[in-house]
């Protein structure tokens, strides 16, 4: 739809991405300073999974991150619910 170059995109997005990554890094650092352990908490696994998706070379990262943060869907839900 637009003919934006990657350089123009970087000019436009760099400061936003920089700020959000620093926010994210600082938030995860806070866990290092906190007491206890969340290694078994599924939410912690979701965070790790989304970080991997961000670092992956494939596209559709937002869609894949959303799916990683979603409950599973079962095609036979109508049979289970009896409706």
């Amino acid at each position: 739809m637009t003919e934006t170059t990657m350089t123009e995109m970087l000019d436009r997005e760099f400061l936003t991405i920089r700020g959000r990554f620093l926010d994210l890094a600082a938030a995860i650092d806070r866990f290092d300073r906190a007491e206890g352990d969340v290694a078994d908490d599924p939410r912690w696994h979701q965070i790790q999974q989304v970080i991997e998706i961000l670092a992956s070379p494939n596209g559709h990262r937002a869609e894949r991150a959303q799916l990683a943060l979603s409950l599973n869907y079962s095609e036979d839900w109508r049979r289970i619910y009896g409706v």
Binding site: L69, S70, L71, Y73, W77, R78
Partner: peptide, 14 residues
Amino acid sequence: HLADKYRGTRMILD
């Protein structure tokens, strides 16, 4: 909302 959206959307479409 949130984690329920994907499952719920699929159910509505079904």
